[in-house]
Design a protein around this nucleic acid. Structure first.
Lengths: 336, 336
DNA sequence: ACCATTATTGAAAGTTTTTTCAAAACAATG
DNA sequence: CATTGTTTTGAAAAAACTTTCAATAATGGT
């Protein structure tokens, strides 16, 4: 079965391909009656423009790449929905890439991004490096980094839509300082390095201002909940929990909650608990876990919108490529 | 900055483009010393083949589309990982599409799939219809449907990798029948229609064989956990829970669990609870919720592998396009 | 009815690759 | 060294579109 092309439509409508091309691209120079004739031919033959050929002719694929680490995948459903929705609005296709730990994996992804000639890319700020961004930049591919703040803004055409985790942690710690509490611990997370670093930085800054140094990290191999729970239960049977425990992800928070309870403590009286990333599971525990409501959908939507603007070189983004998103603390059952 | 093309490489290496094309495609007809010369030129200029032009020349994009409903997105992290991993192995790019409820949304996705000339598509069996598959089929696009069993196998080139939910429910109900229990209820789920239908069918079949008819559906608007929980708490304060409650998703199971406990019942003594889809959150409750361990990653991996075989018209798939995946029941704390 | 505009169309070149077919280079044989 | 047979290479066509520029058609004004 031969695919029908623009030639077939041209012949059917008895016009040249130039004219057919004009009608599929909504050019306004074509006369009304011929437009109709062409449209009928398109309809009759069931013609669908070949995006590949268009891409070649225009050097433009109306496709953007999204790349994130395999691990973070599960946590970003809503961000992805935001990204997808606005991509749809602006008629961009999504090419999806995941990176895994292996050394050259991000290299492979970059390779395929370059070969695919996508118009732009959205990077999740978890496990890629500066050099990798620079490669993309050499190829003039606009990109936006979503998640946390990027430190190097030197590199060309890159936007950044982020949550200020440093400030979040700084403010949180200070709030407890004001209540006279400085017995705080942080559950480490190896999944999202950059965000974690920023949280730590914020805590450190708060402590430093009081002339103290923060060092209460609770660190363990948290590959699965059960082992985390066991580790923590053990831990809390031997150590009194801090007055405030900060975790990054829901499963860590729930592990802390359950382990504390297992060890005979009650929250929030013996120990307060704050989870950075909010999600629905934190409302299913008893008590519910306090957390930050981060506008995940918006993070995605705003990122993609920013990218679409960058792609058409909208002047309004020239100096507005850094967008800090706000968040709100949701006090639930594990904080006073 | 001009993108460098195969011409530039040809000139640099002082050969024709045909030769350059041969070396990038690993053709074995090129002499060793010229191959090296060309490779050096490629290296020197940093040439990356234009996948779009290749796509046009070959009528082959080495890209496959994955389409799933926006709602189901969050539940399919592992399946997607499976899909991505094997796509990477076979060097396919992934185009990602989500469909939302609106009437024409799936139409839009199909439109863009056809225009993109992807080589194949993976469909999640949630909210698309037979007609939509037929459109894809008209364009000769091989597809595999992943998730639950498809009823119509009439349509051409489609594979199916699935869990037999009908049998799962049938067996489960019978197991309880054997124990003399027939007071069973099912929490309805509006998200994943096809899988839900199959569960119902299995339950119905088991009841029918006993000359009974099943009608204990617990149905409510479960858009968020809180409202589900409130509804169910209310419900269980006025109605004794069935001896067995079956739910589809984790959040439903947890809502039932918490609501029952809230209403003063203990599990599994007053009520047993089985959740069809297993995930880590079901091990964070007390007691842990019994569920079926479904090989999600494998569902994805097997589906993609099947598709890659279909794409090269591997004979071994000719009559093996239906693959039923196994699952195992994990008895945890909510069943005896 | 004629000229000057303006609107509409088509021919042809350009986009970057693969592939076929013929030509050129090389090797082997008598 | 001539001839045959293989390898290796290049010219040109093909893939399906967009766009520029020139040509033609339509319109308005006189």
């Amino acid at each position: 079965m031969k695919r029908i092309t623009i030639y077939d439509v041209a012949k059917e409508a008895d016009v040249s391909l130039a004219t057919v091309s004009r009608v599929i691209n909504d050019s306004n120079v074509v006369r009304e009656d011929t437009r109709i004739r062409v449209q009928e031919a398109i309809e009759k033959l069931g013609y669908k423009p070949n995006a590949i050929a268009q891409g070649l002719a225009l050097s433009k694929t109306t496709t953007v790449s999204i790349v994130m680490s395999e691990k973070m995948f599960a946590y970003n459903g809503k961000i992805l929905n935001g990204l997808m929705d606005v991509a749809k609005i602006y008629n961009y296709n999504i090419m999806f890439h995941t990176t895994s730990k292996g050394i050259s994996k991000m290299q492979d992804v970059i390779e395929s991004i370059i070969k695919s000639r996508v118009d732009g890319v959205i990077l999740f700020n978890d496990n890629f490096s500066l050099e990798e961004m620079e490669v993309l930049n050499e190829y003039q591919i606009p990109m936006v980094v979503v998640g946390s703040k990027i430190t190097e803004t030197k590199i060309g055409n890159v936007g950044n839509v982020y949550i200020n985790f440093e400030k979040m942690a700084y403010d949180l710690v200070n709030k407890y300082f004001e209540r006279g509490i400085d017995d705080i611990s942080l559950v480490e997370d190896k999944l999202n390095l950059s965000m974690m670093e920023q949280l730590k930085a914020g805590i450190d800054r708060a402590y430093a201002e009081k002339g103290k140094v923060f060092d209460k990290y609770i660190s363990y191999d948290d590959n699965n909940y059960k082992s985390s729970f066991n580790f923590l239960t053990d831990y809390y049977k031997n150590n009194r929990p801090s007055k405030l425990v900060i975790t990054f992800r829901d499963s860590q928070a729930i592990a802390v909650l359950n382990a504390c309870q297992e060890a005979g403590y009650t929250l929030p009286d013996d120990c307060e608990l704050v989870c950075v990333l909010n999600n629905k599971y934190l409302t299913m525990t008893r008590p519910n876990v306090s957390s930050y409501n981060i506008p995940e959908y918006d993070l995605g939507a705003v990122s993609m919108r920013l990218l679409t603007k960058m792609l058409v070189e909208d002047d309004s983004v020239k100096d507005n490529k850094d967008i800090e998103m706000s968040y709100v603390f949701m006090s639930k059952g594990t904080t006073k």
